[in-house]
């Protein structure tokens, strides 16, 4: 099963590469990639901004920038989608810098199982409130890691590419962050 899955992945990458090459010469050939990635990129942005119309505006900016820079695009060992996410990440940053709106941060239960690793994780519901107060205090760079790793479920290689840091740095920072949050959760429990 795993082998099958891998070969399908590889095939789709090869095909994607052909589409990219064609689109570099003729932008109309970009259409299959636009259709394939519009939804994931839209949702990636929607999970950070508050409404659909804003998400749609930013998404169209992302694809416009992608088309404008496509002639210079080179395959860099990460899927083409990572490049789109990287543009999307930058566009979202720019949006919040200009608009001073409140940024949404999506967190789900996987986050908890990552924090507690092999231990039995405590009940999710009572922890929510405490997690909110902890995450609200985190710097933006750490928020990006939480979102990309535990909500978008991206591999470290892609996270590193999107955030323009090294893969090792992304890993180390994420694990330190999990430790930090776990410590804070325990501290809060003791205090309460």
């Amino acid at each position: 099963m795993i082998a099958d899955h891998l070969s399908i992945e590889k095939q789709s990458l090869v095909k994607e590469e052909q589409i990219i090459r064609a689109a570099q010469k003729d932008t109309a050939a970009f259409k299959p990639l636009y259709e394939r990635y519009y939804k994931p990129v839209f949702l990636f942005i929607f999970h950070k901004v508050t409404d659909q119309a804003t998400a749609a505006d930013i998404t169209s900016q992302v694809f416009l920038k992608a088309l404008l820079h496509l002639p210079k695009y080179k395959l860099q060992g990460v899927p083409f989608s990572a490049w789109l996410y990287r543009i999307a990440h930058n566009e979202v940053m720019q949006y919040f810098r200009k608009n001073h709106k409140i940024r949404k941060v999506m967190v789900d239960e996987t986050f908890l199982s990552e924090i507690y690793e092999e231990e039995e994780p405590p009940h999710w519901e009572p922890l929510k409130e405490r997690l909110v107060s902890i995450i609200s205090q985190l710097p933006l760079a750490e928020i990006h890691l939480i979102e990309l790793r535990f909500y978008e479920r991206k591999p470290f290689k892609e996270i590193a590419y999107i955030l323009q840091i090294t893969e090792n740095h992304a890993k180390v920072k994420t694990y330190r962050l999990l430790d930090k949050i776990k410590r804070l959760l325990i501290d809060q429990k003791i205090n309460s």
């Binding site: 259409k31 636009y34 939804k39 839209f42 929607f46 694809f63 409140i102 949404k104 789900d108």
Partner: peptide, 25 residues
């Protein structure tokens, strides 16, 4: 930040209505 554990994601149809490849070109 507004920490959220779930949001109300748009449906596929809603997302599709924003797609416009011709306009992008």
């Amino acid at each position: 930040y507004q920490i959220m554990f779930e949001d109300d994601p748009p449906t596929d149809m809603e997302i599709n209505q924003y797609q416009n490849f011709e306009q992008l070109l």
